Computed example of a mutant assay.
Amino acid sequence: MILGMAGAMMMTLASCNDMSKETEANRDEATEATADTAVAFENANSPDSAADGTIVDVDASGDADWNNLDIANTEWEMFKVGDMEVRSNDEYSVYSLEENVLFDTDKAEIRKGAEESLKEISSSIAERSKNGAVRVYGYTDARGSKGYNKQLAEKRAEAVKNWLVKNGNINASRISVHPVGEAKPVGSNETAKGRQQNRRVEIAVRNS
C-alpha cells in the first residue's frame, strides 16, 4: 500500500517536472523566435503597420492603395546602373536600393558613389510622374533594438528625400518619409544575405 502511494507520488512529481521542462522549452522557443516573427507580433499594435509588417498608413488624400506596392520587377533599358531593383505598374513606380549602395554601415550620409543611381531615379520620376506623390521608405535588418532601427531608417529616408529635393529637382511638398525599420523584411534575418536584402531604401512614386 505504502509502496503504491510512493510510486504514485513519484509519477506525479515526474509528470510535474516534465510539464515544467515543457513550459520552459516553450518559453525559450518564444524567446528565440526569429526576428521576422517577433516583429510581426510587435507590429500588431503599431499605428503604421499590420501584424504582418504591411504598411497601412495612408496619404493626405485618404487613399489606402499605397499598401499594394508588392508588384513585379520591371526591366527598363533606360537604367544604366545595375545596382537597383525597379518595380512598376500603371499606378506606381518603386525604386529599391540596398544599404551598401547608399550608405556605409550604421551611417545615414549618402555615399558619393550612390549619386549616379539617384540621378537616374530622379530622371525616371520626372518622366513618369510630373506631380505625383513620392514616398521614401527606410528599412533595416533586425539586429540592434527596434527603436534604434526605426531611428536609423528615418534618418536614411530623410537623407534620400533631401538629396531628391536638392539634386533631383523634386519639390519637397511631394515627398513624405516613412521609416519602417525592421518590419516587412524581404529576406531572412537569420542569414547575412537576408539581412543585407532587408537593409534598403525604397522610393515609391505615384505615376501621373
Rank of each mutant, 00 (worst) to 15 (best):
S145V: 09
I203V: 12
S49T: 11
A157N: 08
E24L: 14
A126S: 15
N171K: 14
S20Q: 09
E99M: 02
Q197F: 06
R199M: 12
A192N: 08
M11V: 14
E98Y: 10
A72Y: 05
V136F: 06
E77H: 02
N26Y: 01
R128E: 12
D106K: 01
A204P: 07
A30M: 10
S124V: 05
V134K: 07
K112D: 10
E99T: 02
E75I: 05
F79E: 09
A172P: 00
G138V: 01
E120V: 09
P47I: 06
S208F: 02
E109D: 12
L13I: 13
S49Y: 12
D90N: 13
L97K: 05
E24F: 04
K193R: 13
N171Q: 09
S188T: 13
K193V: 13
R143L: 14
N149V: 02
H178I: 15
N169L: 05
E190M: 13
S176P: 01
V180N: 13
K146T: 12
A183L: 08
K193T: 15
G82M: 10
D59T: 05
V201P: 03
A153T: 00
W66V: 05
A8W: 14
K119L: 09
D104M: 05
Y139I: 02
V165F: 05
S176N: 13
E127C: 04
G138E: 04
S20W: 11
G147K: 06
E154S: 14
D18L: 15
R156K: 15
R143S: 10
P47W: 03
E85P: 00
E109I: 03
S88K: 09
S96R: 13
R199A: 15
N169R: 08
N100T: 10
E85G: 02
G181E: 06
R27T: 06
V56K: 14
A40K: 11
D90H: 04
V134W: 05
L13V: 10
N131M: 04
T31R: 04
Y92D: 08
Y95I: 02
N207D: 01
G187Y: 11
A51S: 10
V81Y: 06
M5N: 05
V94F: 01
A64N: 10
E182V: 01
G144Q: 10
V39I: 12
R195I: 00
Q197W: 07
S96C: 04
I125F: 01
Y95P: 03
E109V: 08
V94M: 11
E158S: 12
P179E: 13
T54Y: 06
E85F: 06
V86C: 08
G113R: 08
V180M: 14
D70F: 08
A60Q: 07
I2Q: 12
S88H: 06
M11H: 02
V58G: 10
P179L: 15
R174I: 04
A8P: 03
I2C: 02
E120Q: 15
K155G: 04
Y139F: 15
A126I: 02
I110C: 08
S15M: 14
G113V: 08
K150C: 08
A40Q: 09
F41R: 04
T105Y: 07
V56E: 11
E29M: 08
R27Q: 08
K161V: 07
T140Y: 00
A25G: 04
V94G: 02
K155N: 15
I121H: 09
W76G: 07
S176Q: 07
A6K: 10
T54H: 03
V186R: 06
P179W: 14
